[in-house]
């Protein structure tokens, strides 16, 4: 399986990364080598094999559907937001989305 620089640029865009021009050519080469390695899997017949997502075949454990509220919601929020790049009145600030 090969991957073209154009496919790299598109996939990067979907992953919110910018890779284009000469960079995309270089990255396509390296990722092509990784996909070649990965393609060794195709040699084995897995037609009757159930896919495995968890090594213990465990399923998601669920708790009772009760909200857990912090004792001091405002203080907790403020503490969590201290590390945010930009906040105002308890809200995260991002560039204007709607004019």
């Amino acid at each position: 399986m090969t991957i073209t620089p154009e496919q790299i640029a598109i996939t990067a865009g979907l992953a919110k990364l910018k890779i284009d021009g000469d960079d995309a050519i270089e990255v396509a080469k390296r990722i092509g080598a990784i996909l070649e390695l990965v393609d060794q899997m195709q040699a084995v017949d897995t037609s009757n094999v159930e896919p495995m997502a968890n090594s213990l075949d465990a399923v998601q454990r669920l708790r009772a559907d009760n909200a857990i509220r912090p004792e001091n919601p405002i203080e907790t929020r403020d503490a969590l937001q201290q590390i945010a790049p930009a906040i105002e009145e308890g809200l995260f600030l991002v560039p204007k989305v709607i004019d």
């Binding site: 496919q7 790299i8 996939t11 990364l17 990722i31 990784i34 996909l35």
Partner: peptide
Amino acid sequence: KRRILVGAY
């Protein structure tokens, strides 16, 4: 970035 790209692909 490479691994994100491989994964997304």
